[in-house]
């Protein structure tokens, strides 16, 4: 009973700042912007925005995969070094997050733009200017750079918990180093991979700032559209409807992934 009371403030917070706003979003999504009466027309407009949805999901998915490919070896390395190094390395991973998200993204613009630092350096070599910014690649770069720590942290936590005896057991049963990884370490890190992907994918799919700064006209993401509905187009009802659809899509993606992991291992391996 006492424990439940302790969760009280947070529950109150959740209700006031999450559940009620969510209700408002749902309400707006199903009402007309002019008359305020019930309508499905906001949701029906999804057809127009479908390509943007797909682009958002596609770019976020690519960013996720790149984060995983870069992040896994880093996480593995952090988990296998000694205590002192581990603290130092995980601090390094977290360090960029101490700086403002906006500032970090703007810094990339300064680095990549046609008159930016990189192109300036290249011009000294007689190359360029290369179109490094205002394209999909730059948006993906921005996502990877900003969200990589969210991939590394859960991965490293899970890898650290894998009993080294299991890897020894695999060796004992005939596995070379690569086989130990494929047959034991990798399958046992799936919970970390799933939560890493979730933590990168969800913010990446709904970002608008990264695409505004690093993207061009061809890289408008669904986050940008939603933002503009509230700030410039003054159609909060359409904005709410698009948010709702995005949320459902994200929930489906996350649900599918969690299903994959819990099938094989799930919570039953956790007591380990």
């Amino acid at each position: 009973m006492k424990n439940k009371l302790l969760a009280g403030p947070y529950l109150l917070w959740m209700v006031v700042f999450t559940l009620i706003p969510l209700g408002i979003v749902v309400y707006y999504a199903f009402t007309d912007s002019m008359t305020g009466s019930f309508t499905l027309s906001n949701l029906a407009k999804i057809g127009i925005y479908l390509p943007i949805f797909f682009r958002s999901i596609g770019l976020a998915a690519i960013a996720c995969m790149i984060c995983l490919v870069i992040g896994y070896p880093v996480a593995y390395c952090i988990a296998s070094v000694g205590e002192t190094w581990r603290r130092f390395l995980s601090m390094l991973v977290m360090l960029p997050m101490c700086m403002s998200f906006l500032l970090r993204t703007l810094a990339w613009v300064a680095l990549l733009e046609d008159t930016g630092i990189l192109n300036h350096a290249l011009s000294l070599l007689g190359i360029g200017p290369l179109p490094l910014v205002r394209n999909n690649g730059a948006v993906i770069l921005g996502m990877v750079y900003n969200y990589l720590p969210y991939m590394i942290t859960p991965l490293y936590t899970v890898i650290l918990k894998i009993d080294p005896k299991l890897e020894e057991a695999a060796q004992d049963l005939g596995c070379s180093g690569a086989q130990v990884f494929r047959r034991v370490t990798l399958p046992l890190s799936i919970p970390g991979i799933v939560s890493g992907i979730t933590m990168v994918f969800v913010p990446a799919v709904s970002t608008f700032y990264i695409s505004q700064k690093l993207g061009g006209t061809g890289t408008v993401l669904i986050g940008d559209v939603i933002e503009s509905q509230f700030k410039t187009a003054y159609n909060p009802n359409l904005g709410a409807a698009l948010s709702l659809i995005l949320m459902v899509m994200v929930l489906i993606c996350v649900g599918v992934m969690n299903h994959f992991s819990s099938d094989d291992i799930g919570e039953e391996m956790m007591p380990l």
Partner: peptide
């Protein structure tokens, strides 16, 4: 000779069974 090339197998102290 690394463990995986020895004709020796081990029963580990806390079994070290693969939980997955």
């Amino acid at each position: 000779v690394p463990p995986y090339r020895r004709k020796i197998n081990t029963v580990f102290q806390k079994y070290a069974l693969f939980p997955h």
